[in-house]
Design a protein around this nucleic acid. Structure first.
Lengths: 356, 356
DNA sequence: ATAATAAACGCAATCGATTGTTAGCTCAAA
DNA sequence: TTTGAGCTAACAATCGATTGCGTTTATTAT
């Protein structure tokens, strides 16, 4: 499988652990007490201006780097944000992390990542581990198995801010950063109707997950409002909305006596799968079957015809989540709130649904 | 842009910070000294078996959770691994992180992520920040601008293991986890030759980056070995191998008096772009133009015809990188090594290059 | 000039776990 | 009974930054 190439050891002179410069070193050098050094480095107001300047200059010269661990231990909180999401290597979630990381780093915070793989047990373990790491805040997108949220209670007790993003729990008092899934589902469906679709199928995700539940509701409401009948036969609940599931679902739909002329899929993967399968069966897209997905994943721009979809402002959601956490510490202790930020989505119309 | 909905504050009874259980609490409870508690929890051999059992049982009952910060401060190293990569939201790198995170968590390590956005300054800042966080090891994929590697020196001085993965520096004594880019480039090119291509173009990346440099060398060697002439006109150095660059390059190639009949692209993005553009110009793929990419990104399976490519074992590379770091501490101090792990790639032949 | 106030800085405890050293104890061999 | 090996466990220092409280010095007011 692979080869190992081991080079010569180099000499241990390189390995002498040099001591780091501490505030004590600076204190000795400048004949101040460590407390003064500490305060000066933090621009504390009770330290003279000249003193501050002198100390900071010397710190620079000595290449002093504060030991974050020591400060965290003393303060019982660290300048780091914990993340728990289902899967890192999914475009939406990767972008979410990107947004979180950028905003956090700008504020001098580290980001500690964990992934649950959509397993409840992993999520619980990760949430605990992040708690043990004394993160200053937690950003979570729930795993698909999660129904009970008691593993987050300890954060609330310690007043550590939690931000749920995208996949959020129903009953938990905390920050939330979400999109309007109902509106998005409604508009996506409405778009298909406007293109002339009369029988629209829906690839629905696990219904106990808020995002999928709401998208489906939006779909149903759009149909009803347009006087179209809701046919349960056309609503396919899927576990993971994977490529394979999408294919099977499409296969089934096409076999119906009265097959659909449009599909609204709750994600792009299944939508792309539908397009490829239907095309293979000689169905014309979008003329005979119009398709719209959800997420605006990269594949949506590559498939032919290009896939219409709903775009999630993933990075922005990450940035806002981070902001909530950073702001939290400035709030008064007894005004913990449950603040919901709902971001707009955008329908992106491409060739897979453009009939006119 | 978005709406904020602020709910009622809830009462501060929820916000009472409860003290955490420490080894001192356990010591008081069981009438042992803190040192005994500490050793017992770590299964130290100098503590009696019954004592250990009793202490661990009580710790469990009290829901004791060790304060990792305190231990890290004392030991001057934390159970966390730092990562610095160019961009989190790129399929290959996201998978790399996935692999690292899984392996790390299994060993009880946290993963702290930073991204450089391919900016040298960011990389330097991040590497420093991770050092300040006292990470127990560092995993790096170099940014495209990086030529100087002195920002890693402090790790070496403190004997903190560094693993370079994929994009590695030329002259730096450390662990490396890479693929055989030369062989991959060679085989990809060879494959096109076997399919009957006589004039093969190459989309090359920035040449000071090892991976792109080697892929190009492999391409050149394959041509030479097959008696085909290396035409500089057909080798296009690109900065980022983006979709746009791929398009422009293809446009240029097709305008040549003697256009190529094959393209080996150093990534999938540019390859897909080439396919789409060429198809738009009425060129038949693979008959008139065979294309092979690199990375096995999701889009490679969606484009039509599906893109032949070279697959990177991304997750595995992440796992191995983590393993190197975890193993490092078990090595003797004076045998620091530069160990290179070279993983095999796999050529995945799909429709974009299959002529026979 | 003296009292009063403000500004600048130091002392020492604290956060929680770890560990080298020391000391008490048991039991067996001499 | 004595000596010592082998366990077992405690003491106290340590990691580095922070902070309440107290002290000294400088400044202003009277």
């Amino acid at each position: 499988m692979f080869r190992n190439i081991v080079a010569q050891p180099y000499f241990s002179v390189y390995l002498m652990k040099k001591k780091e410069v501490t505030i004590y070193d600076l204190a000795k050098e400048l004949n101040y007490s460590p407390s003064t050094i500490s305060r000066a480095l933090n621009n504390h107001k009770s330290i003279g201006k000249k003193t501050i300047k002198k100390i900071q200059k010397t710190a620079e010269e000595f290449n002093y780097r504060p030991n974050a661990l020591a400060a965290s231990l003393r303060n019982n909180t660290s300048r780091s944000i914990g993340i728990t999401i289902p899967k890192i290597n999914h475009p939406f979630q990767a972008s979410l992390i990107t947004g979180i990381e950028k905003a956090a780093r700008k504020a001098g915070y580290n980001v500690i990542i964990t992934q649950s793989d959509d397993k409840y047990k992993n999520e619980v373990d990760n949430v605990k581990a992040l708690y043990d790491a004394r993160v200053g805040g937690l950003i979570v997108s729930l795993g698909i198995e999660t129904r009970d949220t008691s593993h987050f209670d300890q954060y609330v007790k310690q007043n550590i801010p939690i931000v749920f993003v995208d996949r959020v729990p129903e009953n938990f008092n905390s920050y939330r950063v979400i999109i309007d899934n109902h509106a998005a589902g409604y508009r996506a469906t409405k778009h298909l109707i406007e293109q002339g679709c009369k029988r629209i199928a829906h690839f629905a995700g696990a219904q106990h997950v808020n995002v999928y539940n709401l998208r489906k509701k939006g779909y149903v409401d759009a149909l009803r409002e347009s006087g179209l009948q809701v046919d349960e036969e056309l609503i396919l609940d899927m576990k993971t909305l994977s490529f394979e599931e999408g294919k099977k679902a499409t296969e089934m739909l096409l076999k119906l006596d009265n097959p659909p002329d449009g599909i609204f899929s709750a994600n792009d993967t299944a939508a792309v799968s539908a397009i490829l399968y239907a095309k293979g069966k000689g169905i014309k897209i979008p003329e005979e079957l119009a398709v719209i997905g959800f997420n605006n994943d990269p594949i949506s721009q590559i498939v032919e015809p290009t896939l219409s979809t709903v775009s999630h402002p993933a990075q922005k959601m990450g940035e806002i989540s981070t902001k909530r956490i950073l702001e939290h510490s400035t709030r008064k202790l007894d005004t913990a709130v449950s603040e919901i930020t709902m971001l707009d989505t955008e329908i992106i119309i491409r060739d897979s649904s453009k009939r006119k």
